[in-house]
Nucleic acid binder design. Structure first.
Length: 434
RNA sequence: CGGGGUGUAGCUCAGUAUGGUUAGAGUACCUGGUUUGGGACCAGGGGGCCGAAGGUUCGAGUCCUUUCACCCCGACCA
């Protein structure tokens, strides 16, 4: 893509209400803009990142045998009356009326709809197990949306639901999804932990959360330095007071706070802040029972489905990548999430040799299916560099005054180091890096 | 939903205590010129129903009432 023809409205100043790095940089970098409280538009760059994350989520789920569907976003209130959630979800569910004064809600989640979909269509144990998911807009009318994409009212979430003939099989799927989620977050290039969550009435290993480690995380978790143990503090500290006191501490304060107990593996335990980006949950037959969704077992006896549910906050992940990967200059996208891998920067657009090399390289990289941006704008060197750092292309190839000596530079966004490369070798060199 | 705060140019904000020229700055944008290795410089220019509705007044960005929106601190959540 040519920078001169894209819609990437970057700004020097952040909106005054943006407090978190991800919020500031995503707005300043022209990825998103705010439409209303908890409502965001995705501009071209933001849309690309969102789609990349969505694609990785989809690929790994499909590989694990899940089926993607797409349920209607607006659902009749009757669906929620039957499960009892029309009352219990309260004001989080935004209700609307159509022209006939019929009541609908903007779906905040889809257990009911998914059970209704499967009910009477999957009728035999032979058809089980089944794992259906969708990556679709959700709406939760939060009392207080904040932190940009991290807590919007309208957001993109992957929600999956699995149906089983036995609890054992449901647990097998639950474990499979845990592994699948690990693959997804690993592919995204994130430093994350799986933690035991507060599983309420279900108990046991019924619920696990996936946290991206970041200073600005809203949750406090305990992690081991030598094994992959992790726990939300809500599960290991008895009193509300202790939990509240820990949650109020800043990242630095927590870092220095020692935990006396050792992990069962012998390793040291420490506190971290995390952003919850995934949650997997063993549901049992709570919904299948209340919605009378049954299958026939080997003996022809009707039984409610054993279910589990699996969520990933897709739009929240966009912000999480930046919360974990940024510096004072802007975004540092991971290779899997970068909107463009390479930014070819023509330092001085009036220099014919620079333009010629830039165009040539741009064409070659495009032919090689590299996601490449050509910064062909008439602006000055410094301006374009600041812009590239703010947006966070993993690599920027600087075609500038060193071209007179047959050299160009590769600027590594993460380290901010510039490597001198002979212009004749730049294509091979950049291809090696990726 | 409780407590607090803010709405003035695309963005960041002055101006409002004490009403009074044509409502400002920086930045961004447009024109021309000079620049071209870290968000350039000079000159010129466009851009505002001062959140909205009522009211007080000879006169309202400024005072009063109502209302809407957004933000922050709490309680709640992918």
């Amino acid at each position: 893509m040519r920078r001169s023809r894209t819609f990437i409205p970057t700004t020097k100043e952040a909106p005054s209400d943006a407090t978190l790095p991800s919020h500031q940089f995503l707005v300043r970098g022209g990825f998103i803009n705010q439409q209303g409280a908890g409502l965001y538009n995705y501009l071209p760059l933001g849309k690309i990142v969102l789609e990349k994350i969505r694609t990785i989520v989809k690929q790994e789920l499909d590989k694990a045998g899940c089926n993607e569907v797409q349920l209607s976003f607006i659902t009749p209130i009757s669906l929620w009356d039957r499960s009892g959630r029309a009352d219990t979800m309260g004001k989080e569910m935004l209700r609307i009326q159509d022209r006939h004064n019929n009541d609908f809600v903007l779906s905040p989640t889809n257990e009911e709809a998914m059970v209704e979909l499967v009910k009477n269509r999957v009728t035999s144990y032979k058809d089980l197990p089944l794992n259906l998911y969708q990556i679709n807009t959700k709406f939760r009318d939060e009392a207080r949306p904040r932190y940009g994409l991290l807590r919007g009212r309208e957001f993109l979430m992957k929600d999956g639901y699995s149906f089983h003939a036995s609890k054992e099989d449901m647990i097998r799927e639950f474990n499979l999804m845990e592994e699948t989620y690990k693959k997804i977050f690993t592919r995204l290039g994130l430093d994350f932990r799986v933690v035991q969550a507060d599983s309420g009435a279900i108990g046991g290993d019924g619920s696990k959360e996936f946290h991206v480690l970041a200073d600005s995380g809203e949750d406090t978790i305990v992690v081991c330095n030598s094994c992959d143990y992790g726990a939300n503090i809500e599960t290991i500290f008895a009193s509300e007071e202790e939990i509240d006191a820990l949650n109020e501490k800043s990242y630095e304060e927590l870092q220095s706070k020692k935990i006396d107990e050792k992990c069962s593996c012998g390793g040291e335990l420490s506190f971290k802040k995390g952003i919850e980006v995934g949650h997997i949950f063993q549901l049992g037959n709570r919904y299948s029972h209340s919605l009378e969704a049954n299958f026939n077992d080997e003996n022809g006896k009707p039984k409610p489905f054993e279910m589990a549910t699996f969520g990933i906050g897709v739009s929240r992940l966009v912000a999480s990548v930046i919360e974990q990967n940024h510096d004072e200059s802007g975004c540092i996208w991971t290779k899997a999430t970068a909107p463009y891998m390479v930014n070819v920067m023509i330092s001085n657009i009036k220099d014919e040799a620079q333009v010629a090399l830039g165009e040539e390289l741009y064409a070659k990289l495009q032919d090689a299916n590299v996601e490449v941006m050509l910064d062909d704008r008439k602006d000055r060197f410094g301006f374009k560099m600041k812009d590239a750092e703010l947006i966070g292309f993993p690599y920027t190839i600087i075609i500038g005054k060193e071209l007179a000596n047959e050299n160009v530079q590769i600027f590594d966004r993460a380290t901010k180091e510039k490597t001198e490369v002979n212009a004749a070798n730049i294509y091979e060199k950049i291809m090696e890096l990726m």
